[in-house]
Nucleic acid binder design. Structure first.
Lengths: 143, 143
DNA sequence: TTTGTTGCAAAGGGTTTGCAGGAGA
DNA sequence: TCTCCTGCAAACCCTTTGCAACAAA
């Protein structure tokens, strides 16, 4: 019973963080966890099966989840907020396919050397960075 | 007459790109060129000396300038568009000081090796990336 | 004179707030 | 029961659009 177990873990995490377990929160997390790409609030709501929650509720919860490091908020040139579930709380980046929209996490961060070079060039001490990667996923790039 | 010269160069660039030379455009460029950080539209207008143009005009021009690669549009978590003048049209990144807000360009891109590592990890072919750097500038980091 | 530009006002649309009713614990 | 949450509607506010007047060329 993998499902049962997953749900139990998620509910425990909610409670452990001081949240009440509501069907809305469960639905938001379920949608985000099973999505292969960043989702807007509208997209999150439309993907809720059997349950439809209000827009403000989703925003409020997403904001709280972000404070706990559970979701990452991305906002691109279209000015729309999109959210991704972070399976790892370690520093990581997301690569998104420009053709099919699928996104995956790249664990770890290979930027160490590059950042050092940029620190030397700029004279700044770089403390934080945000990298967004775009390209072609394995399926889309193969012919 | 450095000023005269700079202005002449800028006006020629405008004309060369098919733009008419208007005081609004001149003012926008002047503000952006002399700014040491990304500016919102509101900030751009408030910094215009002796001339005040309408909000839509600034947005429209900024959009056109961006299409010519003259300005870069950044939008952070606060959802507000900010614009920086790009002195070079080559690929580059910006580092912004988290304390004083000053931002500088880092010419070139030291990410080649890091991107290759991430391509290998993800299986994606990475075609485009956007990197935002934050840290402490030379003045702010000293002590 | 021709045609690109500007400015005003209004529309647009994603996000946030206020508040009363509802439901976890 | 006691709070926390949710949902609705309205408020917000940055950005865009429409259109008539204006000005560069």
């Amino acid at each position: 019973m993998v499902h049962r177990n997953t749900n139990a873990v998620r509910d425990a995490a909610l409670r452990g963080a001081g949240f009440r377990v509501t069907p809305q929160r469960q639905a938001i997390i379920r949608v985000l966890e099973t999505s292969d790409r960043p989702l807007s609030v509208e997209e999150i709501i439309s993907r809720m099966k059997g349950y439809r929650s209000g827009v403000p509720t989703v925003y409020r919860n997403l904001q709280q989840f972000a404070e706990h490091g559970w979701v990452e908020t991305l906002v691109g040139p279209d000015q729309i907020m999109r959210f991704v579930w972070c399976s790892t709380s370690k520093h990581h980046h997301h690569v998104q396919c420009e053709q099919c929209g699928r996104a995956v996490e790249v664990e770890g961060c290979a930027l160490k050397r590059a950042l050092e070079a940029m620190e030397a060039k700029s004279g700044f001490r770089i403390t934080r960075h945000q990298l967004q990667l775009f390209g072609l996923c394995p399926e889309c790039k193969g012919e």
